[in-house]
Design a protein around this nucleic acid. Structure first.
Lengths: 108, 108
DNA sequence: CTGCATCCTTCACGATACTG
DNA sequence: CAGTATCGTGAAGGATGCAG
């Protein structure tokens, strides 16, 4: 564990680049319950703007954490699914939840 | 686990507010090895600016993840230590490391 | 429905100089 | 050594309108 060194490219920074920011982890978390379309995601994360949602989905797809499937129908139908790499974020999200809960518990 | 709902105050967002951003987790991680002074931290995170370091330490202290001890000496001597709440971030950092390593492994 | 383009605001972050 | 003050920049995020 002490084998992590703070350099230009350490695991912590890699993860921050992949899922850092305000939205990516929330999006990934929503997709754990199964594939969702843009509208479904928008509903489950009410306060994200459409622009940010599409933008983040694109970067998540670029880093292969999410896959985008276009059904080529009319009206358009596009489905977003977690990839294997994306599913690997589950323990991370659990750790975040545990941290927050423990933090709030100790606030008393 | 599916008990996390994306609301204004969900655990994920709480954690993002506490340790989100570019530097806080890196600082916490450095303090796992023991207390450090400002200069020591600066050396272990070479590319952080002095301003950001002090600023982040202050918010970490405000949220009680880090404690600041001023020895009141001359020249100044101030030591930063992880609190119990701060130590609770360890599993989070480990999860981030695991995620990054697994991600890179699957890149081959 | 999905997505792009634009314009705009905010703020995280950074560079530098200065103080006790 | 530790910290403050100031100024500046770029990126992140947001609002809105338009298009296939």
């Amino acid at each position: 564990m002490s084998s992590i060194h703070i350099t230009a490219r350490c695991p912590i920074r890699t993860t921050l680049e992949l899922v850092g920011g305000k939205w990516k982890l929330l999006i990934l978390f929503q997709l754990f319950n199964g594939p969702l379309r843009l509208t479904g995601l928008k509903k489950s994360i009410p306060d994200i703007s459409e622009k940010m949602l599409i933008q983040e989905l694109k970067t998540l797809a670029d880093s292969e954490l999410v896959s985008r499937k276009n059904f080529g129908e009319v009206p358009p139908r596009v489905e977003y699914t977690l990839t294997e790499k994306g599913k690997a974020a589950m323990p991370l999200i659990e750790a975040m939840r545990d941290f927050a809960l423990r933090y709030e518990r100790k606030m008393e």
